[in-house]
Amino acid sequence: MKSQLAQAWDGTNRFQPLPYVLARDCFDRGTCGWLELMPNFTKEGFKARDSIIDKTRWGPTMLSSASFGYMGTHGSMSGLYSLKLATRPVANRYEEPPAPGSMAHAIKRLSVFRPKGLVQMEMWYAYTPEQDRIGVGEKDIRAFGAAFDVQDESYRYFVGARFLNSVNGELKRQWQILKASDDVTDEQWAYGRQGEWNKHGVDPMWYGRRYPDGRTDGYQFVSGGQQRLCYNESDDKINWIYLRLTIDTAQREYVELQSGSTVFDLRGIQPTLVQPYARIDGLLNPVVWVETDANRRVFLFVDSIVISCQ
């Protein structure tokens, strides 16, 4: 069954879906429900509540032909268009809260339709900075990642991984999973700001204090998680890379992370469990994001994504 479903995509075997495919998104068909994450515009004048993280300026998502000034149009792995996440050309130092616009974050809002069990996200992606200067800009990409935001009858939790590529211009190239440090208060989670909306463990993409060696209060390093991805030799040559994240919503555990041909066994690691939020019962939101490490736009191109479950 796995093989039949995988081949139904486009005749290739480049996905390894679980038996029930919830979403099969190829961005030649449009944005498929992926859009930038924004705060709740529920205040007077359709403003968002005050926060130490200004999410209203996260960079836009768009359909991209991956075109470059001296290379021309790359297109995508499947055809012509990919989903591009683009930051603004602004970054704080790593150990500071992310600057407004320094991240781009896309979300697809789903809910559960199968009994609890294995859930999986697979994608083919590429990453590069804007080719606005000569040289190789690999070190200007701070991180990119993929995760699920889940809420069941008892808990909300974020389960996912990011590739910590660079910290203040120093290449790290190491995988981390979303898992908050235990001894962190809600206030510390929000960089010391009182009255922040989010609870400890929620939205670790931008919350959780960060330290100059790459650690944060929101992530744990994956054991043996150093990896040299295929970045290529210039910023206008992009290579499509495979990523798979498998979780278990029955056990509320990580299962596996696959990057390229490397598989990291994460079974038994539990994400940070948080009391449920109002009105999001059964939430199952896959998300992807990218963050710049310099005053320079960086891009995450996503060719295609498959969300599947047991």
Binding site: F41, R57, P60, S64, S67, A86
Partner: peptide, 16 residues
């Protein structure tokens, strides 16, 4: 842009 405060010169982000 969402409720952006514009003064002096400005450009919107590039959009494909």
């Amino acid at each position: 842009e969402r409720h952006a405060s514009l003064s002096g010169h400005f450009e919107t982000e590039p959009f494909e």
